[in-house]
Design a protein around this nucleic acid. Structure first.
Lengths: 328, 328
DNA sequence: TTGAAAGCGCTAACAG
DNA sequence: CTGTTAGCGCTTTCAA
C-alpha cells in the first residue's frame, strides 16, 4: 500500500540500512547518497510507519490519559493542557474516559498498556490496596492526579485539606453563624475514590470545630438540593454553603434563584475548583482556584521524567488560591 | 521484558501458532490444550502487544481526532461523545489539538497517519483546494465536522445557513427594529476555514434583506465588544444582537451588565451553539441548539463504516433546534 | 561508506 | 488438531 523503506532502497539501488541512515540523520553515509535518498523519499511521499518503529524501539511516544469525562470542566481543562504539553514534547495522547466505572477503569488501563503507551496520567476512581498493587505492577510509569492512591504512587495536585481550611476560615471571617459543607459524592466513599472530597471535608471539619460558636453541618447524596432546601428552612441563622465543587454550587444557585432567594443576601455560597464556566456566572462565585492548567503541564513534565527513568517526588503540591467572590 | 506468545508456547510445550489459536478463539484446537494455554497465559500475566498485532493486521483500532482545543465547550462536548461511541466499538482515540494553526494541523494529521490510525475525525482550520487534495490523498478515511472542506469529503453537521435563517426570523418575530450579526471570527476568513460562521452570516443576511423595514449590520473582529458598544450608543432603535457563537454572546452580556445595561430590556441577545455552560447563565440565552453529542456519535458511526470499506453520504445533516430564551 | 541479516511480537498460510 | 514458516516495516548489529 504505502511506501516503505524497502521501496526507497530499491528505487535508489541501495540497502535498507543505508536508507535508514539517510532518513534518520545517522553517521556513516556519504552526502551524495544521503541527498539522493532524501530526494527519492520525498518524491515517493514516504511516511515512516511509527507502529513498526515503536515495535523495535520499545516506545511509542504516546501517553495515556484516563479521566472521568470531558463534560466536567475540570477534566476538559486538564486534558487540554496535558495535550498541549505532550505535543511540545512530541508525545501524542490517548484519551480514555472511565465515566466513574471502576471496572471499566481497569480495563482501559490494561488496554492502554497493551498498546504499549509509554506512561499513564490517571485520575482514578478506584481505590484500595488491590488497585494500588495493580497500578504498581504495571510495566510503565503512572502518575496520579486528583485522588491519591497510595503514598508510593506519584501524585500531583493541591493540599486539599489545607485549601478547605483556608476557604472555611474565609467564610467564617464573613460572619456566618452556620456553615454547611455540601458534598454530594460523599455517599459513594465506600465504592469509589473520592479522596479529594474527603480531604476537603476533613479540612472543613477541623476548622469549623475550632469555632465553637459556629453551627455546622454536612450534606451528601445526589438529592443535596432538597436537603439544602430543608436546611435553609429550618433555621434563621446566617448560613453559608461551602460546596465541594463549583458545579454543585451552581446547581444550588440556580435552584435558589428559581425559588426567589438571593445570594448572598439570603444565603452565602462558596465553591471549589474555579472552573472556567464561572467567568460567565453571576453573582461571581467565591471559590478555591485549582491550578488545573499548571497541574496538567506539570504532570506531563514529570511523567516524561519517569518515562526517561528518572525518579520524581511522590507528592507534588501546586499552589491554589482562595477567591473571594460576590456570593458570600 | 513482558510475556510474549513465545513464552507461553515454551511453557506449554506447544508452538506459537497453537497459542494464537487458543488466545484468539480460533478453531482447530483441542479443548484440553486450549484450556491449558489459557491457564498458563493468565498465570504469566500475558498481555498481547497490540502494537505488533496492529502491524500484521494492518489496523490499529484507533481513530484520530483533530480539533481546535478543549477549552472550547463545543469541542469538549464533541470529543466526549466521540470517545464514548468509539469505546463502545472497541476503538481508542488519539486526540490532537491544532489550536487554529493551519500548519500545525497538517503536521498533526501526518503524524496520525504515520501512527497508522484507522481514520480521522477532523475539525479543520485549513481550507482550499490544496488542503482538500491533501486530505483526499491520505490512505485512510477522513470525516469532517464543523467546517466544510469540499463536496467530495464527507461532512457531518447542521444546515448552518438554514439555522441562521430560522434564528433570524425568530428574532424578527420579537419586533426588533435593528439586528446586528456579531461574528468576531469573520476577519480571518481569508486565512482560516470559518465555513460555519460564513454560512451563518449568509443565512442572516438573506433573511434580513427580505425585511426592508429592518435595519441590519455586521460586526467582526476581536474588538467586537467595543464595536457593539458604539453601535448601541448610535441609535435608539430596538436592537438585537445575533451572535455567531454563544461565548461571544456571553462576553457581551457580561460587558453590558458591568455597564448597567439590561438584557433583554435594553438590547436583545441571541447566541448560537447551545453550549452546556448556558445552563448556569442568566438571563437564559436564546440560541441555536447544535446537537453536539449526536454529531460526535454519528461521526464515529460513519467513520467506522468508511473504515470498513463502506461508502457513506457526503453530507450528513443533523437536526438543530431554535431555543427561545429570556434574552430576547 | 555500505550491505546483509536478525529481530521486535504478532498473525496467517500452508504443511503435516 | 498442531507445527513451521514467512512476513508486517522498521532499526540495529555485524561484516565487508
Amino acid at each position: 500500500m504505502s511506501v516503505t523503506v524497502e521501496d526507497i532502497a530499491k528505487a535508489c539501488g541501495v540497502s535498507r540500512g543505508t536508507v535508514d541512515r539517510a532518513l534518520n540523520n545517522k553517521p556513516r553515509i556519504s552526502p551524495e547518497t544521503k541527498e539522493k535518498i532524501l530526494k527519492v523519499a520525498k518524491e515517493l511521499g514516504y511516511r515512516p510507519d511509527l507502529l513498526a518503529r515503536s515495535l523495535v524501539k520499545g516506545r511509542t511516544m504516546s501517553i495515556g490519559v484516563v479521566a472521568f469525562d470531558l463534560k466536567n470542566r475540570f477534566f476538559a481543562q486538564l486534558v487540554n493542557s496535558i495535550e498541549a504539553e505532550a505535543r511540545k514534547r512530541n508525545y501524542t495522547i490517548n484519551i480514555t474516559l472511565q465515566e466513574e466505572d471502576p471496572e471499566l477503569e481497569i480495563q482501559l488501563i490494561s488496554s492502554l498498556v497493551g498498546r504499549r503507551i509509554d506512561g499513564i496520567i490517571l485520575c482514578p476512581v478506584n481505590k484500595g490496596e488491590e488497585f494500588s498493587n495493580f497500578i504498581s505492577s504495571l510495566p510503565i510509569p503512572v502518575l496520579v492526579i486528583g485522588n491519591v492512591l497510595s503514598p508510593s504512587i506519584p501524585y500531583i495536585g493541591i493540599d486539599e485539606a489545607k485549601a478547605a481550611r483556608d476557604a472555611t476560615n474565609m467564610i467564617i471571617s464573613k460572619g456566618y453563624e452556620r456553615i454547611v459543607f455540601v458534598c454530594p459524592p460523599l455517599y459513594k466513599r465506600n465504592k469509589k475514590n473520592i479522596y479529594s472530597h474527603e480531604q476537603r471535608l476533613d479540612g472543613f471539619l477541623k476548622t469549623v470545630k475550632v469555632h465553637k460558636e459556629i453551627e455546622y453541618g454536612v450534606v451528601s447524596g445526589m438529592n443535596f438540593i432538597q436537603k439544602v432546601d430543608s436546611l435553609l428552612d429550618s433555621s434563621t441563622k446566617k448560613t453559608a454553603l461551602f460546596c465541594s465543587g463549583d458545579t454543585f454550587a451552581l446547581d444550588i444557585i440556580k435552584h435558589l434563584r428559581a425559588k426567589g432567594k438571593k445570594v448572598p443576601q439570603d444565603v452565602g455560597i462558596m465553591g471549589f475548583d474555579g472552573i472556567d464556566t464561572l467567568e460567565y456566572v453571576t453573582p461571581a462565585l467565591g471559590t478555591v482556584l485549582y491550578p488545573v492548567e499548571k497541574t496538567g503541564k506539570k504532570a506531563v513534565e514529570n511523567l516524561v521524567e519517569m518515562i526517561n527513568g528518572k525518579s520524581i517526588e511522590k507528592r507534588i503540591l501546586m499552589k491554589y488560591k482562595i477567591i473571594d467572590g460576590e456570593s458570600l
